[in-house]
């Protein structure tokens, strides 16, 4: 007989993720904020770093990931704040579901938001700078890197939102511990864009994979300590 608990667990994750996505479909406040912010960052970089086409090619991975990191922080903050302010978090905690389901549900919705923003930023950047960014390897790296970023970010934003300093605290907590993702993602992205041999990109890919797996596992194990009353 199929254990009901397992299907209940996955249903809970999807329900939590869907709740956020559906709400966002209606209001679009989070996505528009993230998107506008990301485009503004690209704009600022344009004037802050006056780059000739050759240097721009080299700087592109760094600029992209910096943009994603900043926009990602915005999304993580807002996503958790909305949860707390509307009292949804308390409601979720009353539900008879494992705490980690809340984590995975939020992780999923946060990831989707980040990916949507990235999906829009990439073509815009391509057009602005006449670069082809639609390299399969790059898409893969963006997926892996965003996942790692959001995996840790969801855990830390759950903590940050419960402190006095809230929004300000998340980047301070997140950036020092997410550096491996940024370093590896930038190097791997650069590798794919420049068409470097896969064997040379592999170490960076490994770091991303290890990070993603390890931190998802850790977050899964400790999430209950972060949301208990």
């Amino acid at each position: 007989m199929k254990p009901r608990r397992n299907s209940g667990y996955f249903k809970a994750i999807l329900a939590i993720a869907w709740k956020d996505l559906a709400a966002e479909l209606r209001s679009r406040e989070l996505l528009s904020a993230m998107l506008v912010f990301a485009l503004l960052v690209i704009l600022i970089f344009n004037f802050a770093l006056e780059l000739d086409p050759g240097t721009r090619r080299i700087a592109t991975p760094g600029i992209l990931w910096t943009t994603f990191a900043f926009a990602g922080t915005l999304g993580l903050n807002r996503s958790m704040a909305i949860e707390k302010d509307r009292g949804c978090l308390d409601g979720l905690l009353l539900a008879p579901v494992d705490r980690s389901a809340i984590y995975f549900g939020k992780l999923l919705s946060n990831l989707v938001f980040m990916l949507i923003v990235e999906t829009i930023v990439l073509p815009v950047y391509s057009v602005l700078y006449n670069l082809n960014l639609f390299v399969p390897g790059l898409i893969g790296i963006i997926l892996l890197g965003s996942f790692g970023y959001v995996a840790v970010g969801t855990l830390l934003s759950s903590m940050a939102v419960q402190t006095r300093t809230r929004d300000v605290l998340l980047p301070i907590l997140l950036f020092p511990v997410v550096i491996p993702v940024l370093v590896a993602a930038v190097k791997a992205s650069a590798g794919f864009l420049e068409g470097i041999a896969f064997a040379e990109i592999l170490p960076w890919l490994n770091i991303l994979l290890v990070y993603d797996v390890v931190f998802t596992a850790i977050a899964f194990m400790v999430y209950e300590f972060v949301v208990e009353e």
Binding site: M159, Q162, P180, V183, K187, I207, V214, F225
Partner: peptide, 24 residues
């Protein structure tokens, strides 16, 4: 609780950071 969680996160991420910077 939060301190312990962050110490754990930092404890795992810093060695990985070292490896990635070394590679870089």
């Amino acid at each position: 609780r939060f301190g312990a969680v962050y110490t754990l996160i930092g404890g795992i991420s810093v060695p990985i950071t070292f490896v990635s910077i070394r590679l870089w």
